[in-house]
Design a protein around this nucleic acid. Structure first.
Length: 562
RNA sequence: UGGGGUAUCGCCAAGCGGUAAGGCACGGGACUUUGACUCCCGCAUUCGUAGGUUCAAAUCCUGCUACCCCAGCCA
């Protein structure tokens, strides 16, 4: 066994240096989602980076919900996110926390800063604050409230907390530098008034700390050493440092923020805002609709945690903006499933075949291996009868060139059974093929000498009398058409919806082997030639539902120029 | 036109002064009771660009260019 080489990255290089220089003695990370939606594939990159980084250095990772905006957050998401992290195989050994647990600490620091002249209550309106902030090229100007006495700010701040003022009336601001070329340093807001019930603290507070204040404080309280985040926070880093510095006396650690590029996947919607629109607009059945790029949806669709982690491992971590080809994700899924999923036969789009020389009542129980490379996975029985179903696409009355499945005059092998010759077909009044007629070569039963004869094609099949009907859902992930043209980014809600692939779901009524009756929700099988299918965890008793995870590579279609 | 970043094969990504890893995709071939899988073979004389330093540069220096992020009382 070769030990897969764990590739280093620039973050680990930086941490190696921090450890070498003595800046830190250990490593402690945190994964800080805001509970305002479910985790999607894009979050996995940060999640894996946080957990694996700590693991690499023998440290721990905290799960901290960044719940500082009660207007958008809900308990449902907290529970969902925790379930998803566990499903991926990670555990917050460092502990479970909520930014809201630090409200009191944040408040104390705020009062301290007011007293030290580092913060002040500003009564400018939101519009005025924007005007005073200046622009990208012009410096801002000081708020007229900037130099009010600390005692005055303190009094106002306490009354803000007491609920004496309406939302928007005033905010608490850090006193940094209104002329800074970095806009984030122009006296950023620390606290705003919000009469919203918080999913954890209820009505206890009517003032809530902003991310730029609460996040570094939370990191420092928890003793985080390396605070990993995405690139857009790069110019918040000086602010992060400022907050940690000013609060140093009241907090145990001085964490370091390191940024890396977030994951983008070709044609995949990776914005919580848009995903929320799909859910709330009823375009999908929910966050776990198998067409969604959320983890809960991918799980339901049959993606494995192993495949996703392998994918994240392969894309690497760097600082360049990048968009990873969806094909890589699908490759990882196929590779993982190909080696582990039991094989089974099911016909998704059935076409009846009558074995004309097969006795009416004859049943032949054939042994089918569960996996060609893993004998230890055992085998099961499939029963051949006079009438069977094959896939519609496996028969052509008039074959195209290089077609070596079933057509009149051609011989094919029924997987694990016999070689049959196609003699013709029956049609209805409209000319549609209703049944195909074949003759079985009785000397070619699987396992006998005669079976060693070579034929070009092999087809999967299901008995027409001994089977279980099921519903196959061929989900395609919701993908966006590549937005072309100059106005590509001006995609408003309408454009966004209209650019989604329309035929992203196809429901088929097929037949599967009895063997599949024993499948448990979540079990995935490779249906011969037609792809990987997962028993839907959402299926109800009765008609079983299998979702397609991902299709097989189809070189056949390419050869035919389709 | 302020500030912060990034530029290595179609897509990711190693490389950290000594003469371009790897994966995906793609092309060709072998094998095949899944046209899958597997297996071979091919795929950057060149690292955004123009100069400079050096025996030697993707790696150092300088100047350009392109793209991304920032003007929420969101995170």
């Amino acid at each position: 066994m070769e030990t897969p080489e764990v590739r280093s990255n620039f973050i680990w290089d930086a941490i190696d240096e921090d450890l070498r220089s003595g800046r830190y003695q250990s490593v402690h990370t945190r994964f800080p989602p805001e509970p305002n939606g479910y985790l999607h594939i894009g979050h996995c990159k940060a999640l894996v980076a946080d957990f694996l980084t700590a693991e690499r250095y023998g440290g721990l990772t905290n799960l901290r919900f960044d719940d500082t905006n009660p207007a958008k957050e809900e308990t449902e998401y907290v529970d969902g996110i925790m379930a998803d992290i566990h499903w991926l195989g990670f555990d917050w050994k460092g502990g479970l926390f909520f930014a809201s647990e630090y409200y009191h600490k944040c408040y104390d620091i705020a009062e301290d800063w007011i007293n030290r002249g580092l913060a002040y209550v500003c009564e400018l309106s939101a519009e005025e604050v924007r005007e005073y902030r200046g622009t990208l090229t012009q410096p801002g100007k000081n708020s007229p409230y900037r130099d009010r006495p600390a005692a005055e700010s303190l009094d106002l701040f306490r009354r803000m907390k007491a609920g004496e003022f309406p939302e928007g009336k005033m905010i608490l601001r850090m006193k940094i530098d209104m002329a800074s070329p970095n806009i984030n340093m122009r006296d950023p807001a620390m606290y705003r008034i919000l009469y919203k019930e918080h999913h954890r603290t209820g009505k206890e507070w009517c003032i809530y700390p902003m991310y730029d204040f609460a996040h570094p404080i939370g990191d420092a309280i928890e003793g985080i050493t390396h605070s990993l985040c995405s690139l857009e926070y790069e110019d918040h880093r000086p602010l992060y440092e400022w907050v940690v510095d000013k609060a140093a006396g009241m907090l145990p650690s001085h964490p370091r923020q390191i940024e890396f590029s977030r994951l983008n996947l070709t044609r995949t919607i990776m914005s919580k805002r848009y995903l929320r629109m799909l859910v709330e607009g009823g375009y999908v059945s929910g966050w776990d609709d198998p067409r969604m790029p959320t983890l809960c949806a991918m799980r339901r669709r049959g993606y494995t945690p192993e495949a996703i982690r392998d994918f994240i491992d392969r894309i690497g971590v760097a600082k360049a903006d990048s968009t990873v080809d969806l094909a890589l994700l699908e490759h990882c899924v196929r590779e993982n499933l190909g080696g582990t999923a039991p094989r089974a036969m099911a016909v998704v789009k059935p076409l009846k075949v009558i074995l004309t020389n097969w006795p009416e009542d004859k049943q032949d129980a054939l042994e089918m291996e569960n996996h060609p490379d893993h004998p230890e996975m055992g085998s099961h029985t499939a029963t051949l009868t006079r009438e069977i179903y094959i896939e519609q696409e496996d028969f052509m009355e008039v074959p195209v060139k290089k077609y070596f499945r079933m057509f009149p005059g051609n011989e094919v092998r029924l997987k694990g059974a016999y070689i049959v010759r196609c003699d013709g077909c029956e049609k209805d009044a409209d000319g549609n093929v209703t049944a195909v007629l074949c003759t079985v070569d009785m000397d070619t039963r699987n396992g006998t000498e005669g079976a060693n004869r070579k034929v070009k094609g092999t087809l999967h099949w299901v008995s027409a009398t001994i089977n279980t009907p099921f519903e196959a859902r061929l989900y395609e992930p919701l993908l966006q058409e590549e937005a072309e043209g100059e106005d590509a980014e001006a995609a408003d809600k309408k454009d966004f919806i209209s650019r989604l692939n329309p035929a992203s779901i196809e429901v088929c009524h097929g037949f599967m082997e009895k063997y599949l009756d024993t499948a448990a929700p979540g079990d995935t099988f490779q249906f011969l030639r037609i792809g990987y299918y997962c028993k839907d965890t959402d299926s109800t008793p009765g008609l079983p539902v299998f979702n397609r995870v991902v299709g097989l590579r189809d070189t056949f279609k390419k050869q035919l120029g389709q």
